[in-house]
Design a protein around this nucleic acid. Structure first.
Length: 424
RNA sequence: GGUAGGGUACCGAAGUGGCCAAACGGGGCAGACUGUAAAUCUGCUGUCUUCGACUUCCUUGGUUCGAAUCCAAGCCCUACCA
């Protein structure tokens, strides 16, 4: 079995580890865990790195545990956050768990009949019965104040104007205890996470050493940023979700399609299982014919297929063809509805649309946040109706603008679509 | 608990009685250019019935012809001390 650590190093998935002995440990099947925040009912592109790391581990025969922070999510991890988070209700967390498992199953094999199924656990299950006194007595005394205070996530926050509450400060105790619990229950010996998790991971390895007298390991991978230094996984300020209801097939595909040349090869290594040879080939394409964006296409295809299946990929592809082909000529309302099925949409009554100025219509349909926004968009020539520019405040909507008398494809800027359905 | 400082738009940050819908920077949105790039340049960025009107500067009251600015109480944050 090839050592997975080498794969991580080759694929930009390795930053640091708690001890070089980890390499030896990984020569034989090991149980590994990574945590996910149940802040939303769907995972985001930002979670891809963790998912891919787990997937590599599972593929190489290791046992993987996806821990969902039902309890810790109620607290909020201060790492990398400048502000205390809004607390989640346990009901929300409960609901989010299901969605997350569904997302993960696209990458990890949870099938109990397979030889090596991944498992999913919720740390609320073991925290809910522990009392404050239990934790202080059994766990808290193994945490030393100077160590806790010296963690980067704590220091940063204490130095900021925001400060930090006791609740958040205790987060590392909970995450540390997770590791101990998983060690006891499943023999888990390794935790992985982004570099921002280093402090939390070492809290766990330290605790297990003290409580069980056993060496367990942690490994971190770099946080993915694009070449401009922006955090990976945001599009137009919104997170890219794995859930098609939150991010359409088309938007998902497009997000990867728009990857910068300088990031594409790196992303291929991180986010796909393509062979090194294939990636080298694509790297040459980026070099010699960047305008064809061959590598971006492959990246987008691989991920869309994996997350949304063949069906989702085809819809994304078709939408792309149509939308960048220019005209909507020859497409019926039904085709368009299918293509734009997860694009934001609004429904208005016929008499709210026909004969009204375009800016009023898009404001009424809630395509923009306010009428002022709508006005600006139209004035600046940012609005297209059925892929034809529609500038000027005096531009009115007529029946000719409706496709089959019931549909209008609106677009602001180059890439933000909105489907307006007209009734009556 | 004490002392000092502070809470301004998405964020950072000016403004300390009228010239304030509130400088400046970042972010965001849109336009030009382009490869559905990047970089650059330009416009916009509280709401509306947009030459004008209206609602805002933590909350609630007050002073004043007039308050983001002054006063009082409250809530929250930070630093030092206990």
């Amino acid at each position: 079995m090839a050592n997975v650590l080498q794969t991580f190093k080759d694929r930009y998935l390795f930053e640091d580890m708690t001890s070089p002995d980890l390499e030896k440990l990984l020569d034989s099947p090991t149980t590994v865990y990574a945590g996910f925040d149940p802040t939303a009912e769907s995972l985001q592109a930002g979670n891809f790195v963790t998912i891919m790391a787990l997937a590599h581990l599972q593929r190489q025969g290791h046992k993987v545990i996806a821990l969902v922070g039902g309890a810790t999510g109620l607290i909020g991890d201060p790492s990398g956050k400048s502000k205390e988070r809004n607390l989640l209700t346990s009901l929300t967390v409960e609901r989010n768990l299901e969605g997350i498992k569904e997302n993960l199953s696209r990458f990890l094999n949870f099938d109990p009949d397979s030889g090596n199924p991944a498992i999913m656990v919720n740390n609320y299950d073991w925290f809910k019965d522990l009392s404050f006194v239990d934790i202080l007595r059994d766990v808290g005394r193994f945490f030393r104040m100077t160590q806790m205070l010296s963690k980067e996530s704590v220091k940063k926050r204490l130095d900021s104007d925001e400060g930090m509450s006791f609740t958040e400060f205790c987060y590392q105790i909970l995450q540390g205890y997770d590791f101990y619990h998983l060690y006891k229950e499943y023999g888990c010996r390794m935790q992985i996470g982004g570099t921002d998790q280093w402090g939390n991971i070492t809290a766990g390895t330290d605790l297990v050493r003290k409580l069980a007298g056993v060496e367990v390991y942690g490994m971190t991978f770099p946080l993915v940023c694009d070449s401009n230094g922006n955090k990976f996984g945001k599009s137009e300020g919104n997170a890219v979700y794995l859930d098609a209801d939150k991010t359409s097939y088309y938007d998902f595909y497009q997000f990867f399609m728009r990857t910068l040349d300088s990031d594409t090869v790196r992303y291929l290594k991180i986010f796909t299982f393509l062979s090194d040879e294939r990636i080298d080939e694509l790297a040459k394409c980026v070099e010699s014919e960047p305008e064809r964006r061959e590598a971006q296409k492959v990246l987008a295809e691989e991920l869309t297929r994996c997350v949304h299946g063949e069906k989702g990929f085809n819809i994304a592809l078709k939408a792309t063809e149509v939308l960048f082909g220019g005209s909507l000529e020859g497409l019926g309302a039904e085709d368009l509805e299918k293509i734009f099925s997860n694009v934001p949409s609004g429904t208005l009554n016929c008499d709210e649309v026909i004969g009204k100025p375009a800016f009023e219509v898009i404001a009424a349909a809630k395509m923009t946040n306010s009428k002022g926004d709508a006005r600006r968009l139209v004035q600046q020539g940012g609005l297209s109706i059925n892929n034809v520019k529609a500038a000027g405040l005096e531009r009115k909507i007529s029946t000719d603008d409706l496709i089959e008398n019931r549909l209008m494809v609106l677009r602001s800027g180059k890439k933000k679509f909105f489907l307006l359905k007209v009734e009556g």
